[in-house]
Design a protein around this nucleic acid. Structure first.
Lengths: 331, 331
DNA sequence: AGTCGCTGGGTAATCCTTTACTCGACAGCT
DNA sequence: AGCTGTCGAGTAAAGGATTACCCAGCGACT
């Protein structure tokens, strides 16, 4: 594989000149630049990344550690991050923590080892692995969930408020026994959505009971079980707030199995505006989160922090939008 | 940031011993290993990846270049690759080519520069960028689509046969004017699905006409337009074969807008068994592709090729499964 | 006892690029 | 003409881990 010295020899200059000509950092004679570029092209020269990163002490790479690659919410974030990062020449590597603190920690180790310029992550809640980043001075930004004991840049959705509004909407539609199926204890978004749900009940002077609340992993299977339980109990709910779109799939399945059509019998609002939400019958009411925007904002914050590590940490909270469709209208 | 020499000093040994103790390549005294490990831990030592990769001339990383992170088919592949790669200590970096030859080429350049151990990609069709990998001797495996002029390892789905079977199923159900909405010209899977569709028409002695075929990008928007066109023309189709699940969303929307219920009036089979396929009314008939398996197999092939670059290239073809649901039953 | 072989660990070369430092040449000014 | 400042390009150091090579020490065998 061609090295920089090969290019230098072919172009009849020193390696330093090749480096400068190719990276355009310093002024180099026009003719030489052309000669170097031609030589590089002819040899198919590709700089050795590890050597460059070793010398530069940093790679033009940001790591994005998300908790579920199969969740459209997170892939949309990924797209936002990617678009912004690419504009300024950074590559993005996407890692999947699977909501698993150990995997997260492992990926953070890899990120540190590879000397990435920065990390964007949706933290699993265990704070310890992120402390490693702080200790190294590696720039990082949390998305979707805050970090308990770190003040870092964070990009959030006001998910508690959104949950409250969605629940209030169900109440306004006349539903009276509203249940909530949300994610695991300790996952901040799951806690917040539950809190927002309770806020709305309280505001409406409805009694809140744990009998109508279920918490499971953020997947269809767990939500399916949860919905089954809720629907078969003595006093089943007449509406449900569901905490993400994968869960909505499980809940809709359960309703189908019980022959229940959403809306009329059981009102339904789910988080995340999945592409298929309008296709089910009746169309699914959703809380649309600005996922792409989250990613884009997080990437911009990260780049700013990479450029200036002394910036004061900021928290950006984006709003979510309730989209009312048929599944939350009894009429 | 702690270096290997710091660990060596703290443990009272040479850097060579630290390296050997930590990597376990060579026999090192038990006590020394323990001392080194303790020293490393106390210092929070993380080896410098670029330095290691520079010396080793290869990084324990495989790049996975897929054409759409938002397509569940590809994210499932990613999961398969990840699971297998992690077992043997490789990291996976996920890159999104967006079905764009230039982006693909750029990611391949990055992969080469970073000296990744191997690349798995769903090629966009332009072969040239892959030639760079071959020229460097970097191991690679193509998934989902073959490479025109390269004989490399490939993992495919027999998508032409699956398309034929799906179309034959529609014919068997009594549909007579069957249309096809597939991906762009030159994308192999799109071409193959069209070919399979035509195979079935020919086998049933039905006339095949371009009036019933539309090709657009593999997205909902394109498919929506295509379906609109097909449905509003003089002799509209009475059934449709749709080439992926994102497109199915667009087609279902169009049908909805025309007040057409799938099945009775217009039969429908789409590729990819999306989680929501059973939730729409009537449930969507699909061709389920073994995406996770594709990823897992590709990763195993890649690892084998990394270990032995002289292996003869293999082509693995996996089968797809037609799942008949309500959308393809007129009764 | 002497020698051979083996084991374990140290020394130093190596991977390749970037960049600090240095030097030469040329232009402009007095 | 001589001096200074500037610009461009070369030389060589630095970055940190791995590993080829070498050496010391010890056990075993003759």
């Amino acid at each position: 594989m061609a090295r920089i010295s090969d290019v230098a020899a072919r172009a009849g200059v020193s390696t330093a000149t090749v480096s400068r000509a190719l990276n355009g950092k310093s002024t180099v004679d026009r003719d030489l630049v052309a000669r170097v570029q031609r030589a590089a092209e002819e040899l198919g020269y590709q700089p050795n990344g590890p050597a460059r990163n070793l010398r530069r002490q940093e790679a033009a790479v940001v790591a994005l550690i998300i908790s579920d690659v199969e969740n459209p919410f997170f892939t949309a974030i990924a797209r936002g991050v990617e678009d912004v990062a690419h504009e300024v020449g950074y590559s993005v590597v996407l890692c999947n923590s699977d909501e698993n603190a150990e995997k997260e920690s492992r990926y953070i180790d890899v990120a540190i080892q590879e000397r990435v310029a920065g990390v964007i992550l949706s933290p699993t809640g265990t704070t310890s692995s992120v402390e490693k980043l702080a200790a190294r001075g590696t720039a990082f930004v949390a998305v979707d969930r805050p970090l308990p004991h770190q003040d870092s840049d964070v990009v959030l959705v006001d998910t508690r408020l959104a949950a409250k509004q969605a629940t209030a909407h169900l109440i306004a539609q006349g539903y009276e026994r509203i249940g909530c199926i949300t994610g695991p204890v300790g996952v901040r978004t799951a806690d917040d959505r539950l809190a927002g749900y309770r806020d709305a009940l309280r505001a409406a002077k409805l009694r809140s009971t744990t009998k109508l609340v279920r918490r499971t992993e953020y997947k269809a299977a767990g939500a399916h079980r949860a919905a089954q339980e809720l629907l078969t109990q003595a006093e089943p709910p007449d509406a449900l707030l569901v905490a993400n779109s994968a869960m909505a799939v499980g809940v809709l399945q359960a309703l189908q199995e019980h022959g229940i059509r959403p809306g009329k019998e059981v009102g339904l609002v789910a988080f995340d505006d999945a592409p298929w939400a309008e296709l089910v019958d009746p169309p699914l009411s959703v809380v649309a989160q600005p996922a792409y925007e989250i990613g884009a904002v997080a990437a911009r914050l990260l780049l700013a922090r990479i450029a200036d590590s002394t910036r004061p940490p900021t928290t950006t909270t984006l709003g979510a939008r309730l989209i009312e469709r048929g599944s939350s209208h009894p009429g």
